[in-house]
């Protein structure tokens, strides 16, 4: 193709070496250096770790909460609490959570689920995207 012939003419071995090296470094960085995807969800009851589920497999687990059972559902790499009777569900995100650090909670049930990722210090993605350290309400 015209483009690749031009490319070959325009570059010396040094250029190509540089291109390849920088491309490899970039791919490595994008893949591993800054990733924050979740790998599993940990389930806590009254702040004690109860169980963990891998996000890679779809599953659902019945967990005993203070007011009855609560289902933790994992589907398509995301997790959520299927609560039934608690309008006071407080969390940084209701519904599905998937990024490292995200939390969903049923306060009266005493159940908290959190996504663990590869990152050493996960931060909630909503806070991150706004650049915020906390939400007041």
């Amino acid at each position: 193709m015209n483009f690749f012939r031009l490319l070959r003419k325009a570059t010396q071995p040094g250029d190509r070496w540089l291109m390849a090296l920088s491309a490899l470094l970039l791919i490595g960085y994008a893949g591993f250096g800054a990733g924050q995807r979740g790998t599993l969800v940990t389930i806590h009851r009254d702040n004690q770790p109860l169980n963990r589920l891998a996000l890679a497999e779809d599953s659902s687990l019945l967990v005993a909460g203070r007011l009855g059972s609560v289902t933790v559902e994992v589907k398509g790499g995301r997790a959520r609490l299927l609560e039934y009777d608690s309008p006071r569900m407080i969390g940084t995100r209701t519904g599905w959570i998937e990024k490292a650090g995200e939390i969903a909670v049923c306060v009266p049930c005493g159940i908290l689920i959190q996504i663990q990722g590869e990152e050493a210090n996960p931060t909630s993605s909503k806070l991150n995207s706004h650049g915020l350290d906390g939400i007041a309400r």
Partner: peptide, 17 residues
């Protein structure tokens, strides 16, 4: 200082990054 010769493409990529 590089141990090899680079042309405009290489320098451009380096500078751009």
């Amino acid at each position: 200082l590089l141990p090899f010769r680079v042309g405009p493409v290489g320098v451009s990529i380096l500078a751009s990054l």
